[in-house]
């Protein structure tokens, strides 16, 4: 403030205080105290769809602010037609009781996928689609990377209602910089 400025009147000071108080109230609404979680989901196999969805829904249960940015085959988790038919790869998966020579046979991915689906169901584990819909309902922001939507010939309408499209790496980076926890899956 320069030396020549006239002293503000009481009314002007009162107006400034009221303005600052109003801005503070606005800040409270943004839930700025809540931790933020930012996940990048790049995989679209049945096993790898679970970690981002489980962490996102659990963080939402803690009232955290959650964003999941889906890119490449991670888009399939958000895809209305594909989310319920994600597969488990039999080839190159040493955790499965199937030798690679057998795993490479036609139809084997279907067999191992069916095996995992049965185990998930028997274990009371929610389906990928159920977890996704729960996450959307709880306010998780699911984003579909625009570049890979175009690359994989998908369409904005292919995704569940509530999924954000038209976003790219800059959006994801800003989100990660702002987050307390960042994960790449």
């Amino acid at each position: 403030m320069s030396a020549e400025s006239p002293e503000p009147t009481r009314e002007e000071l009162a107006a400034r205080v009221a303005d600052l108080e109003a801005r503070l109230d606005d800040g409270d609404d943004a839930d700025e105290d809540q931790p933020k979680l930012s996940i990048i989901a790049t995989k679209g196999t049945l096993d790898m769809a679970y970690p981002p969805l489980i962490l996102a829904t659990t963080a939402a249960a803690f009232d955290w602010d959650v964003t999941v940015f889906h890119t490449f085959w991670g888009l399939d988790i958000l895809h209305e037609e594909r989310a319920d038919s994600l597969e488990l790869s039999a080839v190159g998966n040493p955790n499965l009781p199937v030798p690679n020579a057998v795993a490479a046979l036609p139809g084997m991915d279907r067999v191992t996928t069916h095996m995992l689906e049965r185990k998930l169901d028997a274990n009371g584990t929610a389906s990928v689609a159920d977890l996704l819909e729960t996450g959307i309902e709880m306010g998780v922001e699911f984003q579909a990377c625009q570049m890979t939507i175009d690359l994989l010939d998908y369409d904005a309408d292919d995704f569940y209602d509530g999924v954000t499209v038209g976003v790219g790496a800059a959006t994801a980076l800003r989100d990660m910089a702002d987050a307390d926890v960042q994960l790449l899956v």
């Binding site: 939402a60 249960a61 803690f62 009371g124 929610a126 729960t134 709880m138």
Partner: peptide, 15 residues
Amino acid sequence: TGLSCPMPVVKTKQA
């Protein structure tokens, strides 16, 4: 009952 992670926590939060 019968539900596994993360559903007991998620459903508790919703309830």
